[in-house]
Every structure is written in structure tokens, then in C-alpha cells.
Amino acid sequence: MAETRRAMTREAYGRALLEAGKEDERIVVLTADLAGSTHTKYFADAFPNRFFNMGVAEPNMMGVAAGLAMSGKRPFASTFAIFAAGKPWEQIRQVIAYPRVPVRIVATHAGLTVGEDGASHQMLEDIGIMRILPNMNVIVPADANETTAVVKFIARFDAGPVYVRLSRAPSPVVFDEPPPFEFPAATVLSPGNDISIFACGNMVSVALEACRRLAEEKISAEVINVSSIKPLDAETVITSVTKTNAALTVEEHQIIGGLGSAICELLAAELPTRVMRIGVQDRFGQSGKAEQLLSYYGLSEQQIVVGAKEVLK
């Protein structure tokens, strides 16, 4: 197999943020002692007076970001997903989501692909705890180029708060250039008739690989990149499943609360369908290499192929 092309979503974020910052001086950036890791350092170097390092104090960072947004700024607050969604969840709920304050929370280092740092840093619950908040929007870009498009979009999005989920490890390239992005965002990347495979983030490229494997076995899978988990593109989901009558979801997240749950909630109400959810099976991660972990926890092309056949049995 040819070597997979990869690029870091967090680096794409940092570059796109710098560009956005050049165009709009209302953009301000906050981090909690992770300017380098989140690649917000490019912005910090270019616009030191619009960059605020808040130290290891994420709850305060979210409140400060809200205060800046309420004063006409367009804040981006970035840290690792575990500290962006988990630690300050209550602050996000009270002073960002409830009053619908347009803070852009861009979280890096989500999921198992954090790798060696282990379970304490492998955020696998963030999609769930963010999307449950009224007014919150949740975006999981499929790769670096989609990240660029997303940053451009949210820089101008003032209708409410946004949570963006990025990775640590370089992500397989899905798009050769930044694709169009608008809410609600779900795109059919590979059309098919037998089963709908809904994927987000790093799992999109894995789903596309599985789709090719399934094609060899005469199974026609449709792969949908669900970039915005919330708002969910109900029309695209329903259209696909109406055609295929079978669904599989795959995400680098707990099977509870994330993309799989969002799809099941929609289908249960609109189009009851059997859904196979591939993700982390209600357990914590551990140290290891990114690729090893994905395979160990069943987030592989092989698992999708097996799962799809199981659904179609």
C-alpha cells in the first residue's frame, strides 16, 4: 500500500488563524500554557498584543474569552481537548453556551492518537459533552485542509459558540485543498447504495479505505464526512440512509454521546434503521503509538469492513 499522505490539523489551524488575524483585528487568541502545541504561536508572534496566555487556568480562560467576545472581540481559545472541553465545561455552559457568546474553542490533541501520553490526555468524550449543550456548535474537520476551511468559516461566525476538535498526530489527507464549509456540514465523499458509513475526523480516511475494500467484495458503501456533528445535516443523513437502509458510524470517540449517538438519535426519530457504531467501547485508552492504539481499540479499516458486513447480514 502506498504511504499515506499526512498533515497536522493543529498546524493548519495555526496557519489559518494567523491569516484570519491579518484580515480581522477583532480576532484575539487565548491559550493555557500550550501556545506551541496548539500552534497558536504563529498568531502570538505576529500579534503579541492580541494574544493572551492565561497559564494553566482553563476555567478562567473560558470566562475571559467570554468577556472579550462580549466586548466586540472574536476570541479563539485553544488548549488540549481534555482541558478545553473537560476541565472548564461548567464555565462554558454558564458564560458561553447559555448566553450564546461567540467564543471559538479550538481543541487540539483529541482522541486516541494523542498516543504515548495515555488516557489522561486522550479525550474521548468531548463531542458528547459539547454537543449536549444548547447553542453549542461542534465541528470535527476530516483533515488539515478542511481545518483551514473551518477556521476561515468560524472566524466570521458570530451566531454562537463553536467547539472544533483537532488532533495531535498528523492526519491522513482527505482533501487536496480546503473544501467549501458551511453549516450544517456533511458531505458524501464516495457515493454508494448498500450501506451509509458516517465518519468524522481521522476516521474519514479510514472509512474511505474500508469503502474501497468493500467495493472489492461487491459491497457499495457510501461514505459521508460529517464535519459538523452539531448542527447535524439531517437532510444528507436521511437521504443517504433512505437509499441504503443500513448505517455504520465511525469516530475516534466513545460510542456513547458522539457522532454515532447523534446519527442514532436522528434515525430513531425519522427513519428507524439498524446502526453499527464503531468507536471506543466505553473504556479509557492507554499509552502507545497512535496507529497501534487505533488498531487496538478497533478503529480500523478492517473493523469497518467486518462491521458493514455484519449490518448487511
Binding site: N49, F52, M62, G63, V64, A66, G67, K73
Partner: peptide, 25 residues
Amino acid sequence: IEVSSGSLGNGLSVAVGMAMAAKLD
């Protein structure tokens, strides 16, 4: 009303953000 409050400990952070914005502008 300038802030949503009720959960203790939240308001001062927002005030800090507003004061920072004033300085910036």
C-alpha cells in the same frame, strides 16, 4: 445585565476579559 451568573466563581473571569478588551481598544 452584563453577565450570566449564579454559578459561583464565574463572574470575575468575564470581568477580567472585559477589562482586557478595554485595554486592547
